[in-house]
Nucleic acid binder design. Structure first.
Lengths: 234, 234
DNA sequence: CGGAGCCTTGATGACGTTCAAATCGTGTGG
DNA sequence: CCACACGATTTGAACGTCATCAAGGCTCCG
């Protein structure tokens, strides 16, 4: 399952159907491929981008995962996103030309690097690419607003259920199991993201395990009763 | 202060510095202007777009205000956005080509209608317009994610303070008073949006009034102590 | 094998929801 | 123009949920 390091191209990348090139013709994909570079692998806790750093590249996740977060006035971390393979990192920086958040690897992570200037040039010539970029931002926008609504008004177990189902769906989209997966982030990260304390996350996971909705073993989660989890998420 | 109805053009629209044309040259603005149409005025409670309806136009708010919301499985309204003059409505629909939410006028509202096909064509030829579109989406994305973080982990009064400061800033950006403004949405709308009950909104407004941070008279709000409100928002 | 970070579990209390009722404001129709 | 009715807002009281504090156990790596 390991990709050969030597030659990474969109044409043979397993994430292509989810990633920027997903709707491009072969010719267009080849053109996009010429501007894309490899990024050196990140290890757990390595920073990919730092808030305030000038935006030069968008990054596409090839494997692994990352979290994006901001620091509030008191220096407290505030997680705003988790990134999985196929995701693009950097959209929120387009407006100012500088990154607005930190992005850190949660595990060993491989990335592609897309120079922004070249991407802009290409998008003038390739309508499909242009629309794809817009489309990906639009999706992210919708997801983000939806999340705001879904989380704000719901009880703790509904929030966590919603979070797990979201992950499940994203894994399934990537051709992985949506029923059984590994949480690369800590319980504290999850709590920070969905607005609950670590203890509450832990307690709810335990309870859902007791109720045979989930099977939880450390970082590994198996969804035993998808229907009940969905009902919980409301 | 009333705009003449007969001829509305970007070139003489007071919202242009905030809206899509904000960074365009005169020539480019004139080209954009040719594709923009007027939309008939909406009255309070009129729907601008319905979820699932095909996306044909982006809308720019000229005056008035709107709310966007989705309906959850139980038919419960979930507000995801408030739109003020200069805002563009419809970005979240670009991905699917269909609107994903309802958008309803909160008061009498005037809009411009921007046909999506023409906009796409123009953006191929006008790099500045293309980047402006991306930039506006990026801003909205950042705001949305930031909001998620800011709201999720904070106490009720911090949430409301954050909401009021956000509105204040947006009014100020539009050349209106950031200290004294009218809430076109109901308390219930605010509560829905920031995840609190109507009663809590009302109580906190009363308390902030007692503490001389705000002056509240029905829909009218005056910020008396901006610094204390900011400290509250954390 | 040791240690640090991560996770779990229990007890307590504060904050915000919910339920209830009264008042206020707005818009409508007579 | 006024009266009325409905929706919006305010305020009070009781309850429940989740954060916080505290302590112990587990896991993963060096």
């Amino acid at each position: 399952m390991v990709n050969t390091i030597s030659h990474i191209h969109c044409q043979n990348c397993s994430m292509a159907p989810l990633c920027l090139p997903k709707n491009l013709s072969e010719g267009d994909m080849a053109r996009l491929d010429t501007i894309i570079q490899r990024h050196k692998p990140l290890h757990k806790k390595d920073l990919l981008v730092t808030a305030d750093a000038p935006l030069r590249y968008l990054y596409a996740v090839r494997s692994g995962s990352l979290k994006s977060y901001t620091l509030d006035d008191h220096g407290v971390e505030q997680i705003i996103d988790f990134h999985l393979p196929g995701d693009l990192v950097g959209f929120d920086a387009l407006a100012t030309g500088r990154h607005r958040s930190f992005t850190q690897a949660l595990e060993t992570t491989m990335l592609c690097e897309i120079p922004l200037n070249s991407l802009d040039d290409l998008s003038a010539e390739m309508p499909v690419l242009r629309r794809e970029l817009m489309s990906m931002m639009s999706s992210e926008l919708y997801t983000s607003k939806q999340l705001l609504g879904s989380l704000n008004n719901r009880a703790a177990d509904a929030r966590l259920a919603h979070f797990l189902l979201g992950l499940s769906q994203r894994f399934a989209d990537r051709g992985l199991s949506g029923k059984s997966f590994r949480l690369s982030m800590t319980r504290a990260d999850i709590g920070n993201y969905i607005g609950l304390s670590v203890e509450t996350i832990s307690r709810i996971l335990s309870r859902l395990q007791h109720e045979n909705v989930l099977l939880v073993e450390n970082k590994l989660v198996e969804i035993l009763a998808m229907d009940r989890l969905e009902r919980l998420a409301g």
